[in-house]
Amino acid sequence: MHEISIASSLIEQAAAHVPEGKRLLAVRVTVGPLSGISADSLEFCFDSVAADMGHGSARLSITRIPACFECLTCGACYKSESVYTECPLCQSLERITYSGDRFTLDAIDVEDTHHV
């Protein structure tokens, strides 16, 4: 479970983009099925890691993307979040895997710091 260290470096990276006088509200990431990152584990630990790092207002928003496959038996292209998915047309697992390893920080949401 390396998602705690991932969460802490993600928050550090996001915080570096927060302009002065603003606070972090959301951290938007994209996770592919071949990224080596468990989106569920990241989600699970994010809030407490963020609070520990002084960004208790920050929430995590994950876009899960599929991997793309080209079937070498029938030539079909298909997408799936699971590597177990066979070709939907011919059920072959002979294929080329093109993507799915993405793990990016896409954007952050910020708002002005409150005065109370």
């Binding site: 990276q13 896409d106 954007a107 952050i108 949401d109 910020v110």
Partner: peptide
Amino acid sequence: TTTLAVHQDV
């Protein structure tokens, strides 16, 4: 709320 694009590898 303002959204700021980052587009970086985590």
